[in-house]
């Protein structure tokens, strides 16, 4: 028996007005998989992520979660699906007028019927998962970039989401913090069984956590390679993929 994919993308075209960013995108992500979207700068990785989390409507094609088309279903159903996502934006995107605790609290208050005491317990637990339990009273402007990212992850995990989306999680982090974040992603997948989608061009992270991946190319405007990152490194014949994965620049 084959299991249905958690997320499926069918013949997706992404465009800003008349300008096509990527087209003919087809891939599926299984439940509990860590899926990497990679490619050089400006190829449309973050745009694809924005499509997957329902912030942008496709110019053509389908995005299906558990076989429900995100853009053919009702607004109510789409909001229900999207509320099961946790998203970590590149800069953390914490609400600056709220403390870290309040950032997580707001998500819980909007989507659950928990009591104030239960919310306080969940906030403390989520912050402890990212090593920031002593910073609940701090404002985002009072902590470092790496800590903001971790706090953003705690907020993304607030509702125990089915699927977690990360936009460049390692960007701007030191190697130790980056490694800690990778370990955290792996632990979350192993313990919660969440599907995790990561947009990244940090090779160390890609090889450390990725189960499966696609490689987007800005010239062909589509996927030019797919498979486990390590397998791509060993078997890909495409010079663009090889030079990306081996960090070798090609000067024309």
């Amino acid at each position: 028996m084959t299991t249905k994919p958690h997320l499926r993308v069918e013949n997706l075209t992404m465009a800003y007005g008349e300008t096509i960013i990527q087209e003919r995108l087809d891939f599926s992500i299984n439940r509990g998989e860590i899926f990497i979207i990679m490619g050089g700068s400006g190829c449309g990785k973050s745009t694809l992520l924005r499509h997957l989390i329902g912030l942008m409507e496709p110019a053509a094609g389908k995005i299906l979660f558990d076989e429900i088309d995100l853009w053919q279903t009702s607004d109510q159903e789409r909001n229900r699906i999207i509320s099961n996502f946790g998203v970590l934006f590149q800069s953390g995107a914490l609400w600056s007028s709220m403390t870290l605790g309040e950032n997580i609290e707001l998500v819980l208050k909007e989507h659950t019927d928990l009591t104030d005491r239960q919310i306080a317990e969940v906030v403390a637990y989520k912050l402890s998962l990212v090593g920031l339990s002593r910073f609940a009273e701090y404002y985002p402007s009072e902590i470092s970039g790496g800590m903001r990212k971790r706090a953003g992850l705690a907020r993304a995990m607030a509702l125990d989401p089915d699927a977690l989306f990360f936009d460049e999680p390692s960007a701007g982090l030191d190697p130790v913090s980056s490694r800690l974040l990778d370990d955290l992603i792996l632990e979350l997948r192993d313990s919660l069984g969440s599907t995790i989608v990561i947009v990244s061009h940090e090779l160390a992270s890609i090889f450390a956590v990725g189960d499966n991946s696609i490689f987007l190319d800005p010239t062909d405007k589509t996927i030019i390679a797919r498979g486990a990152p390590q397998m791509l490194l060993e078997t890909s014949q495409d010079p663009r993929v090889i030079s990306f994965l081996t960090r070798k620049a090609r000067l024309k």
Partner: peptide
């Protein structure tokens, strides 16, 4: 196993030092 892993994560994650507020 999953519960245990998360439990270890929440108790073993290196905590950043913060001044008591």
């Amino acid at each position: 196993t999953g519960v245990n892993k998360l439990f270890n994560l929440s108790s073993n994650m290196p905590e950043r030092r913060a001044q008591h507020r």
